[in-house]
Design a protein around this nucleic acid. Structure first.
Lengths: 329, 329
DNA sequence: ATGAAAGCGCTAACAG
DNA sequence: CTGTTAGCGCTTTCAT
């Protein structure tokens, strides 16, 4: 490559990395020759000197990222990291223990410097393991999650408070939340939001934790709707959970929204096409991917001693559709 | 590392790669020391000599893999490749042109030797580009796709023929297929299957191509069901498409299955929880991931001149549920 | 069965 | 501004 361009290997390296010390003419020539030859620097060789060029992300199979489909988030994340020459090392694991183990390995292999820790748990193993392995974790969780570490702080608490206020304003007096597993910090934040907005005592709140699966949500909804005194509105963590709830209501002989209102915690095309269309909080897919990218690049650029990067992410306005209606009590 | 174990670096390398030429005792000691030190070989350095340790997979945003969610397939794929020390380089791209461009780059960078080409198109750019870039493509498509290349041959044709025979046996005389875009070879295979099984002329077949989105499928279904003479059964390529069709039927005032039967081309928890539950072909997620892994490892192990690896993949039996019923005509 | 040494393709420090 | 050179951490002949 250097021979063909008639320069030394160092010049090629400088030209490609936009380093100073190369004349414009030479840089241009190098770039042109590289293009003609279809030559590209080998990332393995590059990583060897320059350090890891990837950020690790282990997702637990079946999990969503704050209700958004993992792949949609990853798409935005990759798109934003691309100009930095960073790749995303995505792995699907069975549980957080496997994720922690993987982070330990990635650290030892120096495969990446930064890893993303999504859907943080109460006292999450992954945080300790990643830090011990010499990695810098970027945590995704509620506001004030993991103080001292870089994080994307998703304001689910505020979003769910808005949902509760909206439902209360419609006259709902018994609201239920079909929630994700309780060990997730995000679940607690959603709960806090609902509670904060219903503190005046006029609204009864029922929280039903599930295993996070659609079947679990369907079962929980069925129990809620066949109680002697059933909720007038049910909030579910994801679009598919809400869809399942819609079906459960139908089978139970209840008409949405007249007998019970349903709200989805994350929007999707399924929410818009359902009958009735589901009132939903917006999908975070793109926003979360971009926020993650900012948190990661910020962390990489930070000098030692800098305070950790915290990227706040607000959830947008509730899209009101046919699955919610005023409730006379 | 070698110093601590009291051996030379070569011995460490041999021990870790299970090469012959190391005594059992030495190998064990090396492994133990590596474990104690938490030492792991750096994959970048390893790739440098040993060649790429990853297989590339570019998926077009929004696409499924034969109706299965991409991440589910990837999970199985990764799991199977893990023992071989191979990783999956997953990238979400906007379209096949971007995928082709990415494959060209990956080839030039020698980032991988093998790439997966899913959802093959008619005269697919990716095949030529990948081959030109010195990569060996593993194609996912219908039986006899891309002769001469390694492939996973999914027998959608047979599966759809079985669907047609099942519907015909129920007395359906007008069957419609809400299909994926027509440029996909898989779409053509599904069509062929339906046609082959309805050749006796007793069943009228209508194929409606869509853009592959849920909205597209919903629109197509709406048009079908509001025709003067509407189909008695509708087959849709994916679970979410079928779910949308169920909703369209409901809005149109039609009762599934009495007025119209609905079949999903790929099963999921949504199909099982819908009202009525959807009669579906099984999800290929795990099978496809495993078949892909076999095709990839087979390709890597093949000596030059060996015939390309072809892994056949049969689609399992239709799960009959409440969305299909006999039809008097 | 083991050790020494030569690269893999790149970047960065230094010399010209 | 450009060329020379020394590694990064591993694998792999080739000697021993």
């Amino acid at each position: 490559m250097a021979r063909v361009a008639g320069v030394s290997t160092a010049v090629v390296s400088y030209a490609l990395n936009d380093r100073r010390g190369v004349s414009v003419a030479t840089r241009e020539r190098v770039l042109r020759v590289a293009d003609e030859l279809g030559w590209r620097p080998n990332p393995a060789a590059r990583s060897m000197r320059a350090g890891a060029q990837a950020v690790g992300l282990a997702v637990v199979a079946g999990e969503t990222l704050h209700g958004a489909p993992v792949l949609d988030v990853v798409a935005a994340f990759q798109r934003e990291l691309l100009p930095r020459g960073l790749g995303v090392d995505l792995r699907v694991v069975a549980d957080v223990a496997a994720a922690a183990e993987l982070y330990r390995r990635w650290g030892a292999e120096r495969r990446c410097d930064v890893v993303v820790v999504p859907e943080v748990r109460d006292d999450d193993v992954r945080l300790r393991v990643a830090t011990d392995a010499g990695l810098r974790p970027v945590v995704v969780g509620p506001t004030e999650v993991a103080p001292g570490l870089a994080a994307v702080e998703v304001d689910d608490e505020d979003a769910y408070a808005r949902v509760a206020r909206y439902l209360a304003s419609l006259g709902h007096v018994r609201i239920a939340l079909v929630a994700d597993p309780t060990d997730r910090l995000r679940t607690a934040a959603c709960e806090r939001g609902l509670r904060a907005a219903t503190q005046d005592g006029t609204v009864a709140l029922e929280i039903v934790p599930t295993d996070g699966t659609v079947e679990g949500a369907a079962g929980a909804t069925r129990r809620l709707l066949t109680q002697a005194v059933r909720p007038t509105a049910v909030v579910l963590a994801t679009d598919v959970m809400a869809l399942a709830a819609l079906d459960v209501a139908r089978r139970t002989g209840l008409v949405v929204p007249w007998d019970v209102s349903v709200v989805a915690g994350a929007d999707s095309v399924l929410c818009r096409l359902a009958t009735p269309a589901l009132t939903s909080l917006p999908s975070l897919a793109t926003d979360l991917g971009e926020a993650l990218a900012r948190a990661v690049t910020g962390t990489l650029d930070a000098a030692a001693g800098d305070p950790p990067v915290r990227v706040p992410l607000a959830v947008g306005a509730l899209a009101v559709r046919g699955s919610t209606s005023p409730q006379a009590h």
